[in-house]
Design a protein around this nucleic acid. Structure first.
Length: 340
DNA sequence: GCCACCGGTGGC
DNA sequence: GCCACCGGTGGC
């Protein structure tokens, strides 16, 4: 009965390409299955009223992302549905991570053709109070929210900043009804420096990675790693004033859908002639207790209360050390010392 | 030739 | 297992 446990934000992207500039947050893909219960909790009617147009749901103009947007947006922009994705911020993570949703195709086929990977169609952030997901009108706003999400939790009132009148009493903006792919974004990612744009390109399901992050420089170059940024700043001193590497983050959201990303293939060692496959293990033969455990772990996508751990974080978000921010900062520091 | 996309891998 | 990085390549 409670609403979703985590607040989220959605942003709609309208570019022709799958590129999306978004803040790092965890992303989860919804599959059409129930494996992913609406994060919003039971309150979320999982009705799939989206029909074929659902995909466009996220495409709906930002201005009209009302509760029923889902039904109305039919104006798909570019290519096909694959472009509607959403990024969400999951507040249940408690400060830890935002969630992103990506729109998903109805079939089990890849979101897009080989030439156009899925694009994030919207960004959502969960209200810290009611845990309902709120669509964020644009990427820039989403990035601002994400940057300080831990110190400044997002709430329904935050939407007043863009003159939207919504409160915790209003229904959620978006539900995990299986029509989109959701991913959890990383929190606290710095906004790109002025003149720069952070682009997120999602890969097709089954790829070795979920997405790629690029930074579009003021002069149009696309940089795909910190070393690239360092080189660019050195080569373009006119655009490096006051810009530290801490402003750049190549962290990508994490898909909530299990197996969206292909597991690492076997190494040469395991494929070499002399390698012997280990004996198969028959799960059924395992002791009872363990089986129970396995069952619970098998539902990482569920956002229902049970999913949370004692610390209030959903199981799937439990990433041990995972201190991307610090790690990035450390790395940035090294570059600062060596190159800037 | 360029570039968007993908795969692979070393390091952690 | 995750992440950062970079090489490869197919399509344009």
């Amino acid at each position: 009965m409670q609403q979703s446990r985590s607040p989220k934000i959605t942003i709609k992207m309208g570019g022709k390409r799958p590129e999306i500039a978004l803040p790092d947050v965890n992303i989860n893909h919804e599959t059409s299955q129930k494996d992913q219960t609406a994060p919003d909790g039971p309150s979320v009617p999982s009705h799939t009223d989206e029909k074929e147009t659902d995909e466009n749901v996220l495409d709906a103009s930002l201005s009209e992302y009302s509760t029923d947007d889902e039904d109305k947006d039919t104006d798909t922009p570019l290519c096909d549905d694959s472009q509607k994705q959403i990024v969400l911020y999951d507040h249940s993570l408690n400060v830890s991570e935002p969630v992103k949703t990506v729109k998903k195709p109805k079939s089990d086929k890849p979101l897009l053709s080989s030439k156009s990977p899925p694009e994030v169609g919207a960004f959502t952030v969960q209200c810290a109070n009611c845990l309902k997901w709120r669509l964020i009108p644009d990427q820039e706003k989403y990035e601002v929210i994400r940057e300080h999400i831990t110190e400044q939790p997002f709430t329904c009132e935050t939407t007043h900043q863009w003159n939207r009148v919504v409160s915790c009493d209003d229904p959620t903006d978006i539900e995990q009804d299986g029509t989109r792919i959701w991913a959890i974004d990383k929190p606290n990612i710095a906004q790109p420096p002025p003149g720069w744009k952070r682009l997120l390109r999602l890969r097709r399901e089954g790829s070795s990675k979920f997405a790629d992050v690029y930074y579009a420089s003021p002069t149009g170059e696309k940089l795909r790693s910190l070393p690239d940024v360092v080189k660019y700043l050195k080569d373009h001193p006119e655009h490096s004033q006051g810009i530290g590497l801490a402003r750049f983050s190549f962290q990508i959201p994490r898909p909530l859908k299990e197996n969206y990303v292909r597991k690492r293939s076997k190494t040469a060692a395991t494929t070499s002639p002399g390698y012997l496959e280990p004996p198969l293990v028959v799960p059924v033969q395992w002791a009872g207790p363990e089986q129970k455990m396995n069952v619970q772990l098998a539902e990482p996508l569920s956002w229902a209360g049970p999913m949370e751990n004692q610390d209030g974080m959903p199981a799937y978000l439990k990433t041990p050390e995972l201190d991307p921010v610090n790690r990035a900062a450390k790395k940035a520091k090294i570059y600062d010392i060596n190159c800037l």
